[in-house]
Structures are given as C-alpha cells and as structure tokens.
Design a protein around this nucleic acid. Structure first.
Lengths: 187, 187
DNA sequence: ATACTGACTGACTAATCACTCTACAAGAGT
DNA sequence: ACTCTTGTAGAGTGATTAGTCAGTCAGTAT
C-alpha cells in the first residue's frame, strides 16, 4: 500500500474514533507510519484530506451499490439489488459508513457542490422513473421516494448495528425489504 | 436571559455553523457576551458544555413531542400526533435539530449512557405495543418499528429542507403521514 | 457594620495545532 | 556526469486553544 493510501486509511480510522478536529494531523501521520511533512505533500491542507477522504469513500460506495444492475431486470429486482448492495456495503464497511454519516451531518457537508450530492440520486431516479411510468411505484415526487429510500436503508443499518445477530439472517433482510417495497409500491 | 442560557444559545449557534471542535470556547464566550472564565464557571470542561447542550435539547424535544397525547385517543391518532409533533419540532427548531443530528453522528454519541438513548423509545414503545396487541400494527419487533419511524421522520424533515415551499402545505403532511402509516399498519 | 458567598472577570499559561522549511535520496531524461 | 522531479523526512514556528487563577463586586445573612 502506498503512503497516500496509508494516510487515508489512518485518517479514516482516527476521524471515526475521535472526530475531525480532535484528530491532529500529527496523529494521522504517526498512525500511517509516515512523516508529518509527507501528509502535507499529498494533501495541501487538513480540510483537503477530509474532503478527499469523503470523495474516495463516496466513489467506493457508489460503485459497489450499482453492482449487478442489469437493464433487463424488473423494476423491483433493480430496486432490490440497490437496496441489498447499499445495506451490505454499510455492514461491511462500518468505518466508511460512519465517516460518511459524520461528514454528512457536519458543517463540512455544506462545502460540497450541489452536483456532487446529486450523483447517486441521478442513477436511482432513472429506475424510480421507470417504476412510476410502468405504474409499479407510487406516483409521488422522485426525490421524495429517494429520501424515503435512503433513510429507510439507514434505519435498517442502524437497527442491525444494535442487533448484530441478524446480520447473517437472510429472512430478516427479506422482511425488511418487503417492508420497504410495500412503502413505495403502488397499491 | 441568564448567562448560562446565553452561553448555551451561543454555543448552539456556533456549533451548528462551525462544528464542535472548530468552535473555540473563547468564541462562545464572546458571542454570549460573557467573560471566558464565566463559561468555565458553569461548565467544568468544553465536553461538559457539549453534553449539557445535548441533554437540554433532548429534554426540549421530548416534551414537545409528547404534547397532546391523550390516553383515550386511537392508536393511529396517537402515532399521528407524535409524528406531527416530531416533524413540527424539527421544522421550528432547525438549529436544535441540526445539533442533535451532528451530535448523534459524532463520536460524542458513544459517550452517552444507554439508558438516556432509550428514554424516547420507552414512551413510543407503549403506543406501538398497544397497536400490535390490537392487531392494528404489523407484528414485527418494536424497536424495528421505532427505527423505521424515526428515520422516516428524518427523511421528511430532510426533504422539507430541500423543498421549503411544502412546509406550509397541509396536504403534503397528510400524504407523508399516510405513506408512513401504510408502512407500519397491518395489511 | 461585618462576614461571607458565589457569580463574574480577563490576563495568563502550558500545551497543542496546522503547516513550513530545509535536506536528502532515488530515479528518469539528457 | 548532470540536472530535474518526486517522494520522504522531521525539526521548527507562530498562532491558537482549553483551562486556570487571583481577585472584584453585589447581595444577603447575622
């Protein structure tokens, strides 16, 4: 692993444990096993490191979430795939998930360009749109469906964190997905 | 307003704007119009101030959320009241809401005693339990319903923040509540 | 009057922080 | 052999921070 990756990995771990501002750059460098100056060689400022780490994580999450989406799948199958991918990613990448949440709920989030926020929504929208047109999904605003979907997944991830024994329980996922699907499907 | 309240108010504003750790205690004291030492007279450490502010906000939120709950109301009416109260509180107290979110997603959250977290759940549980027993609500774990409810409200609050024009739209609230109710009611 | 209390002050300090600077090493291109 | 670039190091710096401390002052009880 090159030093830049080591710095990012160490930063992720420490930020999640201690928060952005109570994690000194010196501690990150030390944990990464590099010199103080090396950190600033790769990231001009601490903020750039934080923003860079977020961008990194978002990219990773997005690519994992879109895996296995095929055009010919039914709307429900597509939605289910995204739903599973999202929750699996959050379960598998707890630190990254926590960082994302901490970041999104911090004043840093407002430093993001609007466009960046929309990237995930853009993809989801296509599928939701298809569902609405085919009268499979409720005819309500797309970004309302997106918000509800996003937060329902967060709810499941949070619930699973408190009930670790369910993480391997396939039945639970089926139940949770059907709960979600009932919420957005047309009746 | 006494100085302690002024300190809490100033801290709230600055924490939401700049985050916990990039808000110096000196800035809080200045914004509150008190001397530096006064802040430490009321709060032994900065952490105690942050934790104290959270406790304050939680108390306020809880009391507002429980308003108008009467024993003789139907389960649906009770749930609806809580749902409306919660969303109204978040809309009206944006800064407090943001602080709560920032706090809950930060490493500070883990400093909380388990009991404290459960306070809100305890009240909600009684109602959910009644609903399950009367076969009005789905027969799934109470804290799963709680998680789904909590996050669905967050979704609506977040959606309203991006669509301010709906904040006064009574129809929207009815729609959003029915969406939620469909999710948890027995079919 | 006297004594006492506790809110309040703001200059002060020791520690910590983000970031800079100089130096050096290894490789690549000429 | 020569520079030029890139990566790496870590001591150093000026600014900033949380928290302290010695003391002022208004109010209250005796």
């Amino acid at each position: 692993m090159d030093k830049k990756s080591k710095i990012l990995a160490a930063a992720l771990k420490l930020f999640v444990e201690q928060g952005f501002h109570s994690t000194p750059t010196s501690a990150i460098a030390k944990a990464a096993g590099v010199a103080n100056g090396t950190l600033f060689h790769y990231f001009k400022t601490k903020d750039e490191l934080i923003l860079g780490l977020y961008a990194d994580i978002k990219k990773d999450s997005l690519s994992k979430i879109l895996q296995g989406i095929e055009e010919q799948l039914s709307v429900k199958a597509k939605v289910k795939t995204i739903w599973f991918n999202s929750i699996n990613w959050s379960n598998a990448e707890k630190e990254r998930h926590n960082f994302k949440q901490q970041f999104m709920n911090s004043p840093y989030a407002s430093q993001l360009v609007e466009e960046e926020i929309e990237e995930e929504l853009k993809f989801f929208s296509t599928i939701i749109n298809e569902g609405i047109e085919k009268k499979i999904l409720k005819d309500i605003p797309i970004d309302l469906i997106y918000h509800i979907s996003h937060y329902q997944m967060l709810a499941i991830v949070s619930y699973l964190n408190l009930n670790q024994h369910l993480i391997e329980d396939a039945d639970f996922y089926e139940l949770a997905f059907e709960l979600y699907w009932d919420n957005i499907k047309r009746v």
